[in-house]
């Protein structure tokens, strides 16, 4: 059985099946974006079958054993620890990244569901999506942490134009056993690529259930307050991580998107993606 490639910003992990173990239930972990200019060491991680359960020793030494859900959750927690350790002095902002003619737009929100919906909508409309997890902030520049986009099983009922994204995508189950799909954001003829680069616009997303989507400008101070509220801090060198967050806030135009109808949100975002000025005008908060 072919190993599963799980690429991080510092390692090329390969989950390798041992004995009767099957990697099929872990397929949602597979993540192989193109990371230019990064020479990633290869790390093999054996996955065994023990008493009907999957078992593995995580690269940091922790032994985990359980069903696919438990293994996937444990692996994701390991990746969080791994990223935190390998990037001192760097804050992590929960965000999705999409790149258009106007540059990189970072959609920032503490609500993963809202963010994923927007990112899947943008991907389905043919935009280049870099990631939908956490952005590592280095002054006005960011690097997205690799992870496939998570799509709910009922995606077609929310956006019929995005139903095709689930075709061939591996499925996994969440805490409440709800089924989701792990979507590779590659586009036809355009492989999934993650680069480090500047942010053209920050867009802070807040839900506006049942309403229209409205977007307005935000002041640097308001943007910094939101970043501070949402960011995860590294284990060490926190002061410089805070300074880098401030650097991003004061150097990048910021917008607040009240997310209601998806088509309305896309109209606002497409203007920013095309590099069209300041988007819809609104009060500076």
């Amino acid at each position: 059985m072919q190993p599963l490639v799980v690429r991080s910003l510092t390692r090329d992990y390969r989950l390798v099946a041992e004995g009767e173990a099957s990697l099929g239930p872990l397929a949602a972990l597979e993540c192989r974006p193109h990371l230019p200019d990064r020479d990633l060491p290869l790390v093999n991680v054996p996955v065994a079958c023990e008493s009907g359960f999957l078992a593995m020793t995580l690269p940091d030494g922790q032994r985990v054993k359980g069903d696919a859900h438990h293994i996937i959750e444990s692996w994701n927690q390991f990746l969080n620890r791994d990223t935190g350790r390998s990037h001192p002095g760097t804050a992590f902002v929960p965000a999705g990244s999409v790149i258009g003619d106007g540059g990189r737009i970072l959609l920032v929100t503490g609500s993963p569901g809202d963010r994923s919906t927007l990112m899947l909508d943008l991907l389905a409309r043919g935009h280049r999506v870099e990631g939908d997890d956490h952005a590592l902030v280095d002054w006005s520049s960011v690097t997205m942490r690799p992870r496939r986009l998570h799509a709910p099983a009922d995606l077609a009922s929310r956006m019929s134009h995005g139903a095709y994204l689930l075709e061939g995508a591996p499925r996994f189950s969440g805490w409440h056993r709800q089924v989701s799909f792990a979507v590779d954001p590659s586009l036809p003829g355009q492989p999934w690529t993650i680069t480090t680069g500047p942010v053209a616009r920050l867009v802070f997303v807040e839900p506006n259930f049942g309403g229209r989507s409205v977007m307005g400008r935000m002041s640097p101070d308001a943007a910094l307050a939101r970043l501070l509220a949402l960011a995860l801090m590294p284990e060490s060198q926190v002061p410089i991580a805070l300074a880098k967050l401030r650097g991003l806030a004061v150097s990048t135009p910021a917008h607040a998107l009240s997310l209601g109808d998806l088509d309305g949100a896309y109209r606002h975002l497409s203007r920013l993606l095309s590099g069209d000025g300041n988007g819809r005008r609104g009060p500076v908060q």
């Binding site: 926190v238 002061p239 410089i240 650097g247 004061v250």
Partner: peptide, 22 residues
């Protein structure tokens, strides 16, 4: 010392003391 220019001045990161100065 690590100096970084930001739009409203400079940030100096003092590695030895793990302190940031604007």
């Amino acid at each position: 010392l690590e100096l970084t220019q930001v739009p409203d001045g400079y940030v100096i990161y003092q590695v030895r003391r793990d302190r940031v100065h604007f």
